[in-house]
Design a protein around this nucleic acid. Structure first.
Lengths: 109, 109
DNA sequence: TATATCTATCGCAATATTACGATTAATATT
DNA sequence: AATATTAATCGTAATATTGCGATAGATATA
């Protein structure tokens, strides 16, 4: 026990949950905001911006990359990260669907 | 170590992360979808709908209630749950801000 | 080639999450 | 009053997450 029973959910539910899990951490939200703000992509600058160790930042970047929300390009010695537009738009769309499906009503508790 | 360093982030980042963490599980996504679909609020029906034990569903409901995204009303022996409209709208708004802040550009990697 | 710079990965410790059976509490029904 | 129904909570086991120091790998610079 203690493992999420992915089998009982739909593909969509699992994917959305995984992407949300990737965003659901203040450090990773901060990273995404920083990537968006800088437009051009930063990398080790994130270590300076946030107050976390280099190993920790690297790990958070890996999480975001794992679900496809960001991409990294090697530029000489350093690595440049930025938002992956397609995955970003897809997640936005999926969330829109979820939120749009709810209509406020008074037949509730 | 092993604890999220909430002190180094903004209130907004922490709150958003907490709300997203609440949604970032397929069971809780399924619960929200079910609550939305049924409009009127269900409760123990969720145990039947999803394939999880009663204790587990109850725990997931608690998580969602903790961040204010749902509310429960006692109706005799059972409890009726539904979306909490204000918190739901607030989260939608916060996410919209995040997604809207990103503009696709070609000055990226 | 030697050295510096930058990032990824490993290994570990602390803590959090997920799931469930068993129990408790609270309201209905008989 | 006794019993059934429903949901919350407790306790526990398995697993996942978070954070960091240390190390390794890869590219640049002297």
């Amino acid at each position: 026990m203690g493992v999420t029973k992915s089998e009982i959910y739909t593909e969509e539910q699992n994917t959305l949950a995984n992407q949300l899990k990737a965003i659901a951490h203040p450090a990773r939200i901060a990273i995404l905001q920083e990537l968006i703000k800088a437009n051009a992509c930063i990398c080790g600058d994130l270590v300076l911006e946030l107050g976390l160790a280099q190993a920790t930042i690297s790990q958070h970047l890996k999480e975001l990359k794992k679900v496809g929300l960001i991409q990294g390009t090697i530029e000489g010695v350093s690595v440049c990260y930025c938002i992956e537009p397609k995955a970003w738009a897809a997640l936005q769309n999926e969330l829109n669907k979820l939120f749009a499906s709810y209509k406020v009503s008074n037949t509730c508790c």
